[in-house]
Computed example of a mutant assay.
Amino acid sequence: MGAGLLLSLDVAAAVLRVGPGEAFKRIADAAKAAKDGDVIEILSGEYRGDVTVWPQKKLTIRGMGERPVLIANGKIARGKAIWVIANGDIQIDNIEFRGARAADHNGAAIRLERGRLEVRNSVFIDNQNGILTANFPDAELFIRDSLFAQAPRQEQSLPHLLYVGRIARLEVSGSRFHQGYRGHLIKSRARHTDIRYNLIYDGPAGEASYEIDLPNGGLAFIIGNIVGQSANTQNPVVISYGAERHAWPESALYLSHNTLVSERLTGTWFLRSWSKRLPPNAEIVGINNITAGIGAFTLASSGAFRGNVPLPPGGLLDPETLDFRPRGADLLRHVTEPAGSARGVSLVPDAEFVLPIGTRPLAPPSSWLPGALQGEH
């Protein structure tokens, strides 16, 4: 987009407000009226059955004050989602989405068809898919400081908290995923996936399959996350890489400073990769990760592993209260290795997840702990 066009969009931008006493009572009406570059402000309250398509090329949509709650209430736009993003550069901030259902059992809170979507400070509860994308190779999705939870207990198809198709890029940070059912917490077919500083922990009420599934490989960086499987998991794999065919030609997986947890009493694969379905030069690197529970980390994946620490059940302070710091921290500081970088990307964490949602900056300590948490709580 040229500089002149961007300038004209900024000059012409209007603020459209939705809510009681405002010009627009319904979000769908504001969506029809909005022009490229406008800002949509949605006041606090519940918006039931107010589903819509956003066709604009550039738009900012934000909730004002206490987060507005969008409840599908049996409605769905284009048979796909509460909101459908057609093909634009869209920013969404401080919105809650609940109850998306579709006739094909694959409804989403947000369906990204094409374009660039950035979601911040938002909540996705009880949707067949939290966010679902199409497969356009130039699409990009960025998720910051958001919550995905409570997959519906449906049997007709697999509900995923986040399902990303074969797009260019996915980035997820500072976000929390829990209480899946049969499907995965995060599934990404993106060419480039960057997941860092999140709490991806299914919890005692969860029954998800994989916690992170990268079925087509791709270039993936998983850094500084707490990733946990429940005792009632539907699959004994926490992170899966390359399980399906049609892998991206450039495929490599880098896991650094993650805390991987399993509460499955009969054992688990903390990481499983399918080398025969990946390109022959696919690189897998694991550095300074903690595995806590009964299971194996490196046995089902060939690669370069160093500084990783297996802890037995009870090796973390108190997962029931979401305290995932390791016991014996002073001893563990002696086993870490320099994380370094890969493909020009640092594998050293510069932040960590903080409850309830979000991150805090992380200054390099005098000596590193393995796992996702370095700071005092």
Rank of each mutant, 00 (worst) to 15 (best):
A3G: 07
S8D: 12
V11H: 08
A13D: 08
G21M: 03
G21H: 11
F24W: 09
I27W: 11
A31R: 01
K32D: 06
A33S: 07
K35D: 00
L43S: 07
R48T: 14
G49W: 03
G49D: 14
Q56W: 05
K58T: 03
R62C: 00
E66I: 08
P68I: 04
P68T: 02
N73K: 06
G74T: 05
I76P: 15
R78C: 12
R78E: 15
G79D: 14
N87R: 07
G88N: 00
N94V: 06
F97G: 03
R98S: 13
D104W: 01
A108Y: 04
E113C: 01
R114S: 12
G115N: 09
R116S: 09
E118Q: 11
R120M: 10
D126K: 02
L132A: 08
P137V: 08
L141F: 11
I143H: 04
R144K: 15
S146Y: 14
L147P: 08
F148N: 01
F148A: 01
A149S: 13
Q154C: 00
Q156W: 06
Q156F: 05
L158S: 09
H160W: 06
H160K: 13
L161A: 11
R166M: 05
I167D: 00
A168H: 05
R169Q: 07
E171Q: 11
V172R: 03
V172H: 09
R182Q: 11
G183K: 09
L185N: 14
S188W: 14
H192I: 15
H192F: 13
D194L: 07
I195K: 08
R196K: 13
Y197T: 05
I200E: 11
Y201I: 07
D202I: 07
P204A: 14
P204W: 07
P204I: 07
A205K: 02
A208T: 04
I212H: 09
D213S: 10
L219R: 15
I226S: 00
S230T: 12
V238L: 15
S240T: 12
G242Q: 01
G242N: 00
G242C: 04
A243E: 07
A247N: 05
W248D: 01
S251W: 06
S256N: 07
H257D: 12
N258C: 12
S262Y: 02
R264Q: 08
L265H: 06
T266D: 15
W269D: 01
S275Y: 04
K276W: 10
R277E: 14
P279W: 04
N281G: 15
G286I: 04
T291Y: 03
A296E: 09
T298Y: 09
T298S: 14
A300Y: 09
S302W: 09
S302A: 02
A304Q: 11
A304T: 15
R306A: 14
V309N: 02
P312F: 08
L317N: 10
E320W: 06
T321H: 10
L322W: 01
F324R: 00
F324Y: 07
A329M: 01
A329K: 01
D330E: 11
D330Y: 01
H334T: 11
T336V: 02
G340T: 14
V345F: 12
V348W: 05
A351F: 06
A351P: 05
P356W: 11
I357T: 09
P361A: 13
L362A: 15
P364D: 12
S366C: 06
L369I: 12
L373H: 03
Q374N: 12
G375E: 14
